[in-house]
Write a protein that binds this DNA or RNA. Structure first.
Lengths: 199, 199
DNA sequence: TACGGTCCATACTAGCGGGTATGGAAGTGT
DNA sequence: ACACTTCCATACCCGCTAGTATGGACCGTA
């Protein structure tokens, strides 16, 4: 197998996953047809099956795509600050914006939760992602503790409450347009920071 | 139309809605087929269409079923206590148990959220239900305030955070079996009460 | 030049499930 | 006794889509 072939194969496989992720984020897993996914990637359904053996494999790939994007954005956001407290605020701000303003994010995660309940593999993937996100936040709290400015007693539990609140906000945002106002957003971010710090 | 016919008609229509609600709570909206719903209610698919004109009507009816059951359980729970603070604790306890122990509840609501995003009618129904739940909790807080024992500054906002946290817990419970331990449950209930009281 | 692997398109199958057409049994009003 | 309504069953249609069968173009290799 030549090097170019390898690249071509992987790139099309990833392109299909990315196309799927985008479409799933607009209409959900069941609504999106394989032909649409293939078309967006520039191939046909027949070719799709050369790269994936089923729709479910594609769904799993699109989840990985989402997980990867989350960490890319989060790490990038963190890297813009030096102070760990500012890092926490920045990541919470990022997460809040995603919940409140990015409807596609909401659609994808909501659909994902349905699947998590129904499918063991999807559940395992989500479980892994959730643990990593949890650790990501905890690391920031640990750095805050190390800085000596604050002392956070139960970082892990605070983060659990933070993540719970975030999911709740995501759902409220679906039916409550007022949450998207800049003022409400800032208020939410401040409240979430308080939760993370154990207040 | 005779009285017996009226009763029979409404009873079968409700029976179909109830059967649908139960099946949806086990496998989700898309998975459940109209034939299953009809069979559980003791009729066939053809008969189903005499009572409902589409699967979507059935879904809406099953949602109403859920909403009704929630308020029945909540009101019953509240009626067992006189002290509004105890009422609050009891309802939060009830809600938590539903989130943590009742998998069917989780499945139904998770599926419901997917639909809320996709369908305007389902969304409107959920919006109405959410408002009523919100008011239900706020009324309890108002009674607590009236009792003079506590003073809760922002009842409405506290309840928003309470409901957000509850939804987050529901999701965490899917992947975290530890939450179902009695000890963890009590801890969560205490924390939620604190949130409701504005702590 | 012959061969085998890669990647893709075209055309097709299969079966599932929402919805319909139709008829019939039982009860009701006159 | 007659028509009429209500409620249900049987049998059927039809659209849709995941997945398959097949063949061909291209590329590296011997």
């Amino acid at each position: 197998m030549a090097a170019t072939s390898v690249l071509s194969k992987d790139s099309m496989k990833e392109s299909l996953a990315k196309s799927a992720f985008e479409l799933f984020s607009e209409s959900g897993f069941k609504e999106v047809k394989l032909e649409q996914v293939a078309a967006r990637a520039g191939v046909t359904k027949g070719s799709f099956y050369w790269h994936y053996d089923s729709k479910k494999s594609l769904i799993l790939a699109s989840c990985d795509c989402y997980y990867k994007l989350w960490f890319e954005a989060a790490r990038k956001t963190v890297s813009t600050k030096n102070d760990p407290l500012e890092q926490l605020e920045a990541v919470i701000q990022l997460t809040t914006e995603q919940c409140l303003l990015d409807e596609k994010n909401r659609i994808f995660t909501t659909e994902l939760f349905s699947l998590v309940i129904q499918d063991a593999e999807v559940k395992a993937g989500w479980q892994c992602f959730y643990r990593n996100v949890h650790r990501f936040y905890c690391d920031i709290l640990d750095r805050i503790n190390a800085s000596g400015k604050f002392f956070i007693e139960n970082p892990a539990e605070n983060i659990d409450w933070l993540l719970s609140a975030v999911e709740g906000i995501k759902q409220r945002a679906v039916i409550d347009p007022d949450l998207c106002r800049a003022q409400a957003r800032d208020h939410i971010v401040r409240k979430l920071v308080t939760i993370a710090l154990g207040g």
